[in-house]
Amino acid sequence: MKTREHKAEILAHKRIDERVQLMTLAFPAPCAVPGQFVMVKAGVGGDPLLRRPISIHRRTKTGIELLYEVVGQGTALLAALRPGAEVSIIGPLGNGFPLVAAKGRTPVLVGGGMGAAPLVFLAEHLTAAASIKQPVALLGAHTKKGLLCVKAFRTAGCRVITATDDGSCGRRGFVSCLLKELLESTARENAVIYSCGPRPMLNSIYELADTAGVAAYVSLEAHMACGIGACLGCTVATTAGNKRVCKDGPVFAAQEILWGQADEN
């Protein structure tokens, strides 16, 4: 399937909490894989100008779901749209999580904040596949309210463990502490890590995985102007030189990334 611009109708649009929205788009994307994203145009015309990158949260028979947080002008405009309205999207874009890495292993999904969004699609994919053990989902957020998709991961068949910075739900502390414990147990033997979240969190996940000798894949974020590999606005320093998060990623093997030189944002 060629990647093109699509006008997709909003089938449903739900408010999850004050800041988080769930948008269902009539965009059947049978080829889409977990970890891919779409570039969404918020509003029409030149202001805001650029598209916004949003991960595919789930795929259904009739379309895709986007789970997004309202943080600025673009996402606020999206949030105001009603079912029946059309949005222009380009996608699916980028490379998803390598699923073969999970063969015969226990996938450990580590999501921080909004980073949980694309991992639900991944969880549903993994639990549907044969020869993959029950995935463990480690979810972290600042507070209980920020913990997203706990139910969705359970429904998908994952074992879910949570952590919050303030201890309002699950373990008090960072989600990386949960991973550390897991990797200190026997679970380490056959684990493979898939993670999405803020850059500092991904950095500590890489360090833990590296110490334990476990393969880890991370989905990175970067400010994107085009999303299709043309502007070089989104590059990240890797062991093989600069790579484009949009086209060569957003999922990378964690050991490929030169973490020290990572984006400070």
Partner: peptide, 8 residues
């Protein structure tokens, strides 16, 4: 290799 991120 260009400038540091963010670039846009």
């Amino acid at each position: 290799s260009g400038n540091p991120s963010p670039r846009t």
